[in-house]
Design a binder for these strands. Structure first.
Lengths: 147, 147
DNA sequence: CACCGGTTACCCACTTTTACCCACCACGAA
DNA sequence: TTCGTGGTGGGTAAAAGTGGGTAACCGGTG
């Protein structure tokens, strides 16, 4: 089980390649075989799953009902942009232009470790996202954590 | 289970390294493997958890729901600044510049033992924090403790 | 079917950052 | 005084991040 953490501001090169920080790579299971699945996330960002974590997620999607319109919509939207990518020799993934466009990522990217997944953000978009949160971190913590 | 206590005013060197006082190290479980996780705390300070204590906390975060926007915000904010650091040969942890900035720590740091975690403060910020507390220690004690 | 433009994957090279090692100083105990 | 422990500072080799060249691959077109 992965436990990604930390944020890293890296650059995206002209070929759409993004380096996976070594601090995050350390937590990738060998089962993932250096393979990642990138897809749209919640809010305006991308989710990057190591293959093994993705498989777990995929299983729960399989359990959805193809006869339920809401489920169909969910499955289509999640899978529409999903792309598999293997690390190159320099530990980078190549992100298709469509996905970068979706998240509004251009030259710089904020890489966020969130336990089982990695998130990719336009740094400016992320700052704005934080601003839209009405409650303070301390206040949310109090209501979210039991203790 | 750790039981850190006491306060220590230490210096931060130009590489962002902070020595963990030997008085506190004594209470770190061997399970922690000389590894600490540093992240943002409540109020303007940093929390430092030995690995074993962190794992307890991480488990409670995993139990949160990734589909709940509030929970997502909490997870992102908590993990954004989280960094793992292993003690060097001189029993120091290296704190990334971002984290020091967050807490406003520069050349001197106040190290506080608070049972399961260690807190890092800018000494001046800590003094101001104490001043902002309207109630006296005695009065708070009465409302907080049963006995 | 051959050709051509665009994309992808792999390789190599440069720069910056990090981790590790060694040295020094202060202080208290023997 | 000498030794050991605890705290501070800095040099350097190794690792990590960035950028770009080129050959293979793929699809579309004349």
């Amino acid at each position: 089980m992965s436990s990604f953490k930390g944020s890293y501001e890296y650059s995206v090169d002209s070929k759409g390649r993004i380096n996976i920080p070594s601090r995050l790579r350390k937590y990738v299971s060998p089962d993932a075989n250096d393979t990642f699945i990138v897809t749209r996330g919640y809010e305006k960002c991308l989710f990057v799953y190591p293959l093994d974590e993705w498989n777990r997620l995929e299983q729960s999607i399989r359990d959805l009902s193809p006869t339920n319109p809401k489920h169909r919509f969910f499955m289509r939207t999640l899978l529409e942009l999903a792309t598999e990518s293997q690390l190159d020799g320099q530990s980078r993934v190549t992100i298709p232009r469509e996905l970068l466009q979706f998240a509004g990522i251009e030259n710089d990217v904020l890489i966020l470790g969130v336990l089982e997944r990695i998130e990719l953000w336009n740094p400016i978009v992320y700052k704005e996202y934080l601003k839209t949160q009405a409650e303070s971190y301390e206040s949310v913590a109090q209501s979210v954590l039991q203790k």
